[in-house]
Design a binder for these strands. Structure first.
Lengths: 356, 356
DNA sequence: ATTGGCACTCAACAAGGTAGAGTGCTAACC
DNA sequence: GGTTAGCACTCTACCTTGTTGAGTGCCAAT
């Protein structure tokens, strides 16, 4: 209610319409919008001069700005923010698009495939950069651990996480095992420790090492040793981040010159930074839109980020999103990110249920 | 001998020295080299005017060219080719560098890690784009196949290739198996089929399906069915290509303008094209250097590619290499690629021996 | 064979000038 | 009151022009 009042105070309905039209036209063309082009569009039965007055007001209020004196106006961060919060009517995805997405997502089977596909879909359907983020296995609980004998001292350890990710790691060990022993050890460890995080498993195993000194059970000793090796320093210490369609950046006029192209590209390479920003929103529900100066990252390069959590409420798994210039078709991108987030969530949930 | 004569015919020793100096200076500076700068370097006790005569000859023979009338000279593809074939003395890597490389390579354990590390080393040590190519598992023989039960109808299949690559694939099947059965099936299939390619295994299994109709052995039936599922359509249909350091391109003056930056970047994205070029040289031994117009790919973007096969003679595994502007420090890059190729080969061979 | 000298060419840069787009303001209009 | 035509003003983008400096090719002298 407070907000509504404020809006009413700031902008009468005409000013809002003008702001809206400027933003839409700017998103479509990338150019600064002048009073004349605005008048020509026909939605206002006003002369350029009158529109100039309105535009001057909008500029005073911080919704628009002029790149230079004799140029038209461009929306500010604040302008976009207002547009998104109060004036955007997101178009739903068409039936066709939804079907096409569902089809493709359902066709993939490995989690990694699904994640990559999602980032690709985000990118191609929006013509922007698509990102999908999946935190490291370290943050999830383990569903099972198994061991396969490859050679005398070479054992492959396969860990399946509660997020469905399958990780394998080659262990080299001085201990020798038969296939049967490994089979049993896998069963034992899975039965005993599934549902815990890797870290918790490691701590338990280490505690067991101490307790077991007294027992002198050789098999148990070997089991614990192998378990610790498996859990220790498991491969994906890094988070997984799929960034797709970086080249789309190079076709946008706002990044046409060599310098911003370089800077932009290098920024997208900095996965740690991106992850940091996406992680911020892991705890928040619903669609997140970050505009221009609202974040370090988006500020420097005039980016906007539209992102959403995936996974179910109880256990958020990661983030999906789109990165692009501030001037992007939010009305189209927002539902796209939302839908793909949901699709990914239900796909994963469905997988998990089937595994029960 | 024929070649030597030709050289002698074309270029006397002074001309060769001049060509060499021009190429070295151009590699270092990226600028066109004028007769004056050449005279100033002191290696020739000649005036600019005399050098101009030599340079004009070299231009007539196609080793040099002028970007425009009042500019210095730049080496042509042919100039570089001559330089590399007859005049380059490759500097060996320093003891330190060799140690550092060996250390890092030995530290990695998973094949994938090693490959990625190698491409990173190639890139950072040369300040160019590093690439490592590993053909799909389909081209190698299989060392072992194992199955792990995850849930009722969900089985993870782990395939280890003779190249050391470990692939896992989640199978969904209507058949039900106990862990023990899967254990046995894995042993059976590995014993029966290791040493064959995936394709050969598939064909044998299919032949068995037909033969087995008469037998009515339920277990064998299930084994074959599962085997076919495992082998069919295995995950990495694609080749693996690690491209590292693409951003280094953006710092080279030859790609400073927005257009060539865009084109260059997009070219590096086209992995299929790159793979096609690298595959061409899988059958050839020793260091390969491809300059400018010598290939479609390198022509368009003024690239050179320095590459080398890795793996042992009997079984080539893939290619390592560097991509950069024609103007690159071949004398340094060549031994680097060569050494990393060898390092990678012996690392993999060593792994394989240990696995016997 | 080598070299100094000289005319010539061309890219790169700077300066000046013009056109056009767009604004803000004011005064007139409804 | 809101609306609008008119006008002076501003600023960018672009074109033109001139200048500078680097570099060449050629010729005649050494």
């Amino acid at each position: 209610m407070v907000q509504k009042l404020e809006i009413h105070d700031d902008l009468d309905s005409r000013a809002r319409e003008v702001l809206r039209e400027i933003i839409l036209q700017h998103i479509a063309s990338g150019e600064a919008i002048s009073s004349r082009t605005l008048a020509k569009c026909g939605r206002f039965h006003l002369s350029p001069a009158s529109l100039r007055n309105v535009m001057a007001d909008l500029e005073d209020l911080g919704y628009l700005q002029q790149p230079h004196t004799s140029a038209g106006r461009v929306p500010t961060d604040r302008g976009y923010r207002f547009f998104i919060d109060h004036m955007m009517n997101a178009t739903r995805l068409s039936e066709e698009e939804r079907h096409s997405i569902d089809d493709q997502v359902n066709h993939a089977s490995q989690i990694e495939e699904v994640l990559q596909l999602t980032s690709k879909l985000l990118s191609t359907l929006s013509d922007q950069v698509g990102v999908v983020f999946m935190p490291t296995l370290l943050q999830f609980t383990v569903r099972s651990i198994d061991f396969i004998l490859v050679a005398e001292s070479k054992i492959i350890c396969v860990i399946v996480g509660s997020n469905g990710v399958v990780v394998n790691k080659v262990l080299e060990t001085r201990l020798t095992f038969t296939r049967d022993e490994l089979e049993k050890i896998g069963r034992y460890i899975t039965a005993e420790f599934s549902g815990l995080t890797l870290d918790a498993i490691r701590r338990r195993l280490i505690r067991m090492t101490e307790a077991e000194r007294a027992l002198h059970d050789d098999m148990l000793k070997k089991t614990i040793a192998l378990g610790i090796e498996a859990v220790n320093d498991v491969a994906p210490v890094e988070h997984d981040l799929y960034v797709e369609g970086a080249s789309s950046i190079f076709l946008k006029p706002e990044y046409a010159d060599a310098n911003s192209m370089r800077r932009t590209f290098l920024a997208l390479q900095e996965k740690e930074k991106l992850i940091e920003i996406l992680e911020q929103f892991l705890s928040e529900d619903g669609l997140q839109i970050l505009i221009g100066s609202e974040s370090d990252f988006t500020q420097v390069h005039n980016f906007s980020i539209v992102a959403r959590r995936y996974g179910n409420q109880a256990a958020p798994l990661g983030m999906v999103g789109i990165i692009g210039p501030m001037r992007m078709e939010y009305a189209r991108v927002a539902p796209l990110v939302d839908y793909l987030g949901r699709a990914l969530s239900s796909k994963i949930e469905e997988e998990q249920e089937r595994k029960q």
